[in-house]
Nucleic acid binder design. Structure first.
Length: 273
DNA sequence: AAAACACCCTGCCTGC
DNA sequence: TGCAGGCAGGGTGTTT
């Protein structure tokens, strides 16, 4: 489940291997990915082949691979997407949907069984609607006063608020649950009634994400970094996936509810409604 | 207008 | 042992 820490881990693993490299031949499976859309192979080849990679960045849960002098490659891992470095002679895994040749007989591969991810070569990242729509990055841009203003303007349950990428970019189900536990806020509390706790909430979000990054991501099922190494953050999760276990703070049983089709884990005693 | 819901997809797990 | 059914939750388009 790639969220901000997993995407950041992939970017950090890929950066030393890709910066300065020139891309060779590009290939795509032709199968539809997110929303039934197919990556455009013509554009992919036209923009990628011969392009020199200037830098890698993360924007929310998106991976941006910058070309010199302009444009680049946009990748979203969706639920099960992987961006991996391989030797060119390694057999391609099932569900490989895009491949870019690299120097020294290496390859960058996008593998995504469920095809919720996305890959596109773009002439200009700044023009992309999906990036423009993203809210501030909780680690880099967001401040407590700004978060307080956003909270005050929303009646949505705080958990839905945190999952909305237009408000804050990068949180998913796991880290939203974890951050709310750390902030001691009940997931169903209306956002506006948490406006007085924006400082604590922001601190909780940052701690949660920073621990996730330090542990190189949460590998519940299938997340691995670009080298194929799973993250260690499952051990650091205090509520997510721990229904029935004792709360690490008060000992009460961790509860699970389903909101908008998504599991929510929380401690009824520690997290105030 | 904002919030809730349905949908895309495959692998894995459970229960018969 | 096989198979059906439920679940996982990324984003987005549609409905309420």
């Amino acid at each position: 489940m790639p969220e901000l820490p997993e995407v950041e881990t992939v970017v950090r693993t890929l950066r030393p291997a890709l910066v300065g490299a020139t891309l060779g031949r590009a290939w795509a499976s032709g199968l539809p990915l997110r929303m039934g859309r197919r990556p455009d192979l013509t554009t992919l080849r036209a923009l990628c082949e011969g392009a020199r990679i200037r830098d890698l960045r993360r924007r929310g849960k998106y991976i941006l691979i910058d070309f010199a002098p302009a444009g680049g490659l946009l990748v979203h891992l969706g639920m099960t997407g992987r961006l991996r470095l391989h030797d060119a002679d390694e057999p391609r895994a099932k569900h490989t949907h895009a491949v870019w040749q690299l120097p020294k007989s290496r390859e960058l591969r996008f593998i995504d069984p469920r095809r919720f991810g996305w890959v596109a070569a773009v002439p200009d990242f700044e023009a992309l609607a999906e990036l423009r729509a993203l809210g501030p990055d909780p680690l880099a841009e967001l401040d407590a006063a700004g978060l307080g203003r956003m909270l005050a303007a929303s009646r949505a349950p705080i958990k839905s608020f945190l999952l909305d990428q237009r408000r804050i970019a990068g949180l998913g189900n796991i880290y939203a649950c974890e951050a709310l536990f750390r902030a001691r806020i009940h997931p169903r509390r209306p956002a506006r009634r948490a406006r007085g706790e924006s400082e604590r909430l922001l601190a909780a979000i940052r701690e949660t994400l920073e621990i996730g990054i330090a542990n190189r991501g949460t590998s519940l099922r299938d997340f691995v970094d670009a080298a194929g190494t799973p993250g260690r953050n499952v051990e650091a999760l205090v509520v997510y996936g721990r229904e029935g276990e004792a709360c690490t703070v008060c000992g009460a049983a961790i509860r699970r509810t389903v909101d908008a089709g998504r599991s929510t884990f929380f401690c009824r005693r520690c997290q105030r409604h």
